[in-house]
Computed example of a mutant assay.
Amino acid sequence: MAKANPNLIFKLRKTVEKLKKGATYQWGHMGACNCGNLAQEIIQISKAEIHRLAMQRSGDWSEQLVDYCPSSGMPMDLMISKLLDSGLERDDLIHLEKLSDPEILSHIPKERRDKMVKNHIADVILYLETWTQVLETQWAAAQSIQLLSVGRKINYSEALS
């Protein structure tokens, strides 16, 4: 799973906020799908630019992530490198595209989880919100461990705001 860090948590929250406010969502569009919407926030480029660069090679996000080569110089590989630099792992993005990470899904009630569809915006939002909560919990726990060694406490809601 992704390395929990405040910047990634912030970008996930921003992605959820944009989707809730009506950002373009189109599962079959490389720049407006599940990964595309998150990539827009992390990389700070438009959905059109993501799509244009991704179309220089064949395959959807999952296929291009499998073929990822950090030294290829291909635009899609450069985008993926930036996403990985944010704390994400390739598997995170593969799972995001299909809403399939078992750890994230385990935090969603079974009756709701069983009805999730990879290309429904409400399900994408639920998945991203749950993922954000999982990362926030991991980050807060890591901070608690660090703070115990110096004997301080932290207000996590303020730190994550």
Rank of each mutant, 00 (worst) to 15 (best):
H29C: 07
M76P: 01
S58M: 12
R57M: 07
Q133D: 10
H29M: 03
W131D: 04
L126H: 07
M76V: 13
K110V: 09
Q26F: 11
M76L: 09
H120W: 09
I45F: 03
E89Q: 11
T130I: 15
Q133R: 14
D101I: 00
G151T: 05
L78F: 09
L19E: 00
D101V: 02
P109K: 15
T130F: 04
D123N: 13
A4K: 02
L93M: 15
S81P: 03
A32W: 00
Q26N: 10
D60E: 06
H107Y: 14
T130L: 08
K98C: 08
R90E: 10
E129N: 07
A142P: 07
P102Y: 13
P70Y: 07
L53N: 10
W61R: 00
S144G: 10
E89G: 12
W61Y: 05
D67I: 03
Q138H: 08
I108V: 12
A2E: 02
T15W: 02
C35N: 11
L38M: 11
R113C: 06
K98A: 12
Q138E: 12
S100T: 12
T137P: 03
M74L: 13
S144K: 14
C33M: 02
I80K: 03
E97P: 06
V124L: 14
K110R: 11
N5M: 03
D114C: 05
L53C: 13
L96D: 00
H107S: 09
A122E: 15
L135S: 00
S86A: 12
P102D: 06
K47L: 06
Q133C: 07
A122W: 06
S46E: 06
L65R: 00
S161V: 06
R152N: 04
A32H: 08
S161Y: 12
S157I: 04
D92T: 02
M74Y: 15
E129C: 05
D91M: 15
P70K: 11
K110T: 10
K115Q: 15
